[in-house]
Amino acid sequence: MQTIIINSQKGGSGKTMLSVHISTQAERDGDGPVYLIDTDPQGTLTQWHNLREAETPQRVELPFAAIGQGLTKLEERGARYCFVDTAPSRGEDVLSLLRLADLVIVPVQPSPSDIWSAAATFQLLKAEHIPFVFVMMRTKVNASITAQSVALLSKFGEVAPTFVADRTAYAASMTDGRTAQELLAKGPAAQEMTALWKNIKACIPTQAKRKEVANG
């Protein structure tokens, strides 16, 4: 099983939206069983899942201190992916969670404050040798600040080649427990999520590569 944690030290970066859309895309692409864990006290992911009629992806509720054990049980149950949504925090508890990740997705909007926050997140992940990828969020067509942001982020680490555009469909679909690609299967949001999930899978290191990175 691969554990993918979506984390940013900045609030409002799109962590929950990305969590639900990517996990749903994984199921749509036949990469299930997929599970979700919501560690954000705000509980937005949980609220979305409570509204959802579809049975997948599944969500498990675990005490924060028991997440490591819970991940082990999910793997024994045959899970292929587990996505963990997180709160914007720099605390030691979040660091302990990030250490469980096979890959951390860091959503970043093209703005100075997001870039500064991403730089801080990068320092934390680098120090712990945790694999990660930046995902550009709420981008606008032909906006120069997007290109500038990608250029800056590329100095820290890999940026997913697929950007998530600023589309109302992403937020609107979540109001009744769905996702944008479920509302319009061949729409632009669906195409973005299909491509982005492929990008993310390509970033997940094998165990051998993970050990190589950890050993410097």
Rank of each mutant, 00 (worst) to 15 (best):
Gln191His: 06
Ile67Pro: 14
Glu128Leu: 12
Pro33His: 10
Glu192Leu: 05
Thr206His: 08
Asn199Asp: 15
Gln2Thr: 02
Ala202Gln: 13
Gln181Phe: 13
Gly91Glu: 06
Arg52Gly: 04
Val20Met: 05
Pro205Leu: 13
Gly43Asp: 10
Asn50Asp: 11
Ala190Gln: 03
Phe134Leu: 07
Ile200Phe: 02
Ala171Met: 06
Ala79Phe: 06
Lys211Gln: 14
Leu124Ala: 13
Glu27Leu: 00
Gln123Gly: 11
Ser144Phe: 11
Tyr81His: 14
Trp116Gly: 08
Glu76Lys: 11
Phe163Pro: 05
Ala101Val: 04
Val104Leu: 01
Gly12Cys: 00
Val164Glu: 12
Leu74Ala: 08
Ala143Phe: 13
Gln148Glu: 15
Lys140Leu: 14
Pro112Phe: 08
Ser111Ile: 00
Val164Asn: 05
Ile4His: 01
Gln148His: 12
Ala214Gly: 08
Gln47Lys: 07
Glu27Met: 10
Arg28Phe: 03
Val159Ile: 07
Val213Gly: 08
Gln181Met: 14
Thr175Asn: 11
Gly30Cys: 00
Met17Gly: 13
Ser13Pro: 07
Thr206Phe: 05
Ala169Met: 12
Lys211Trp: 12
Ala66Thr: 10
Met136Asn: 08
Lys15Met: 04
Thr175Asp: 08
Thr194Tyr: 13
Thr175Arg: 10
Ala143Met: 12
Gly187Thr: 14
Ile105Gly: 09
Met174Gln: 10
Pro107Ile: 02
Leu183Ser: 13
Thr46Ile: 00
Ala195Gly: 05
Val159Glu: 03
Ala127Arg: 13
Val94Ile: 14
Thr86Ala: 07
Gln42Leu: 01
Lys140Ala: 14
Glu128Asn: 14
Gly216Asn: 13
Phe132Val: 04
Phe156Ala: 09
Pro112Glu: 15
